[in-house]
């Protein structure tokens, strides 16, 4: 296995085009354990972190551009990003320990294509776009379209993500992410849920997105959530309001979980409802606080 660290997009695309067995990486927090676990080693690994576009972080023209190879620790320390997308930063901040935070990236978290990736539900809920470069030039895709199944993406062999473009939040809009793990740290999400809520001047929900992790082969959006929550003033979950049951049913309808070493399908269905409620409440409270 050889290692290369190109300093431009063109150089990287050239390397990937020339080496069919090449793979890109940024934090290597998934790649190295997978090799340790017996996955065949790529013939070439291409380190994306020295390409300027992949480590850029800025807001411009109504969008945030977040480099795909920025370590989570940098994202969580960024005040502007945290203010704009608290849920995304929560998700990024939950990828592993402090040590992992020093390495793990949004691009890697997405392209590892695990249904349990913590930063992916908030990216999807936020309507983020991935900027993808490759032999065919640059293209963009909705984050929700990048992963097509466990360990499988829609990117071709020469392609990689340079950055994410995320619409800047409007007034009255915010997000939240929560996951469940059996310990307090170091685990992969058994279930995760992100919510983005926009409220009107009276604090009523105008638009909602709820996205779940680890309950299906890919992260899934609860498409019925917006309809259920629209027009509601979202309080703390009390169990009395019927719409919470509707949301719960909508969540369960989206779940297609499995029994595995981290939890049972039944457990995931139950806890997905719990986390969906909790993140909706948090996102709505944050949204009202922006008014």
């Amino acid at each position: 296995m050889k290692y290369r660290a190109p300093t431009s997009i063109d150089e990287a695309v050239e390397l990937l085009s020339a080496h069919p067995g090449a793979e890109v990486f940024a934090g290597a927090t998934d790649l190295i354990p997978q090799i340790q676990g017996g996955r065949p080693e790529p013939s070439l690994v291409v380190d994306l972190k020295r390409i300027p576009e992949t480590v850029r972080l800025e807001a411009e023209n109504g969008f945030w551009r977040v480099g795909a190879a920025i370590p989570a620790a940098v994202l969580t320390a960024h005040e502007g990003l945290t203010a704009a997308f608290p849920g995304l930063v929560e998700g990024a901040g939950l990828i592993g320990s402090d040590q992992i935070q020093g390495r793990a990236t949004l691009g890697g978290n997405l392209c590892n294509a695990s249904p349990a990736a913590d930063s992916v539900p908030p990216l999807v809920a936020l309507g983020a776009e991935a900027i993808i470069v490759g032999r065919g030039g640059e293209r963009s895709a909705q984050v929700s379209e990048v992963v097509i199944g466990p360990s499988a993406t829609s990117l071709d062999q020469s392609e990689f993500i340079t950055e994410f473009r995320i619409p800047a939040p409007s007034r009255g809009s915010s997000d939240a992410y929560e996951r469940f793990i059996p310990r307090t740290e170091m685990d992969i999400a058994v279930v995760g849920a992100a919510a983005r809520i926009r409220v009107d001047g009276d604090g009523r929900c105008e638009e909602a997105a709820v996205v779940l992790a680890a309950v299906a082969p890919t992260v899934v959006e609860v498409s019925a959530a917006s309809g259920i929550l629209e027009g509601r003033v979202i309080p703390h979950y009390s169990g009395r309001d019927a719409f919470w049951d509707e949301l719960g049913e909508a969540v369960v309808a989206c779940c297609n979980p499995i029994d595995d070493k981290r939890g049972t399908a039944e457990y995931r269905r139950k806890v997905a409802q719990v986390l969906a409620r909790r993140t909706v409440v948090t996102a709505a409270r944050r949204a009202r606080e922006t008014l």
Partner: peptide, 24 residues
């Protein structure tokens, strides 16, 4: 562990705490 799960190999790389087993 060699997989970033125990922290015994922690070093500081450009000011950032990392597991040295997860750095090429």
């Amino acid at each position: 562990c060699g997989t970033g799960d125990c922290g015994a190999c922690s070093v500081i790389l450009d000011g950032q705490l990392v597991c040295s087993c997860l750095v090429f």
